[in-house]
């Protein structure tokens, strides 16, 4: 469906994209996460045929963005991170203009426009001037515009940026709706939690390289590397500590004396963790509870981007 092969973009000595490879199935919602300047917008601009790659290629439904840009344009609906509107056009004229730009006949446009406005909840704004709409409404109008030629793929660059919470929720509902319509959706964001709940797959980009790709849980595990486990004991905390220090997968042990709790980082697999527990029970250690400290996505994201800054 979407196949990105060795995509590289250089601006002089600066490498914005470094041999990016990515393959996406039809009908999924893909979230592209990365700090500002990591290469998200560059990737999307190349997919939208606005920028040609230095090397490599991307295929959308088998059409190359380098060799057949016009065919690609028919397949995609693109919404840039920053965009303007024509001040003196009304909402329906705005959509009509873009419909005509995709070669859609007048009669068809007249049927499509009310449907699209309904989809993005702007039916009552049909005859208003575009520049009088709020930012959230403009964003939704731009989404309707991106949908006018019924593209199979939607490329949305930071669709929720600058929106208030209500507008964000509205945008998310519309995207969910579009997913049920079978569209393949690519969304970028610099905020990971924003994407986590609506994406099937997530890719994390850093310094032009894809550093992680998979479903949200897998990414979280991959990025976290090790988990923080908290153990509660009834007694003999020093004995427990000595036991834990023997395990090679364990590091950063902290004993919280007055509460009889002990926290540590664990790098092993789930099976190894089972073996560890079994051993503890066999030597009769007084452990009564075990829990994994939840790291939220925000922390994970901070960890990745911190790595990027220090380079």
């Amino acid at each position: 469906m979407i196949e990105i092969r060795d995509l590289t973009k250089r601006y002089g000595s600066f490498t914005a994209l470094d041999h990016l490879n990515l393959s996406l199935e039809e009908g999924i919602v893909f979230g592209f996460v990365g700090a500002n300047g990591a290469g998200k917008s560059t990737t999307f601009s190349i997919l939208a045929t606005l920028l040609s790659p230095t090397s490599g290629d991307a295929l959308i439904n088998g059409k190359s963005v380098v060799k057949e840009p016009k065919e690609v344009r028919k397949q995609i609906g693109y919404m840039p991170d920053f965009f303007g509107v024509y001040d003196q056009l009304k909402v329906d004229e705005y959509l009509d203009f873009y419909g005509a730009s995709y070669g859609i006949q007048l009669a068809e446009r007249q049927v499509l426009i009310p449907q699209l406005l309904e989809l993005v909840n702007l039916t009552n704004k049909r005859y208003d001037y575009v520049d009088l709409l709020s930012r959230g409404m403009k964003q939704r109008l731009c989404l309707a515009r991106a949908l006018i030629h019924d593209p199979k793929v939607l490329i949305l660059d930071e669709p929720a940026s600058g929106l208030d919470p209500r507008a964000r929720v509205e945008m998310r509902d519309i995207l969910r709706n579009l997913k049920t319509m079978g569209k393949t959706i690519l969304i970028s964001s610099h905020i990971l939690p924003e994407l986590a709940e609506m994406c099937d797959e997530i890719g994390v980009i850093d310094n032009g390289k894809l550093i992680a790709h998979g479903n949200v849980a897998a990414i979280q595990a991959q990025l976290q590397g090790e988990k923080r486990i908290v153990m509660k004991v009834t007694d003999r905390i020093n004995e427990v500590r000595a036991f834990l220090e023997e395990d090679p997968h364990i590091s950063s042990i902290d004993v919280i004396d007055n509460r009889l709790e002990i926290a540590f980082n664990y790098r092993g697999t789930d099976a190894e963790q089972v073996a560890l527990l079994k051993k503890a029970v066999l030597i009769d250690l007084p452990i009564y509870a075990l829990s994994e400290e939840e790291k939220d996505l925000e922390d994970v994201f901070m960890a990745i981007t911190k790595g990027a800054d220090s380079q």
């Binding site: 939208a48 045929t49 995609i76 303007g84 995709y102």
Partner: peptide
């Protein structure tokens, strides 16, 4: 300047 060009260029107009 009005940031409308990119959108225009992604349409199928030549």
């Amino acid at each position: 300047e009005k940031q409308t060009l990119n959108i225009l260029l992604t349409t199928t107009q030549s």
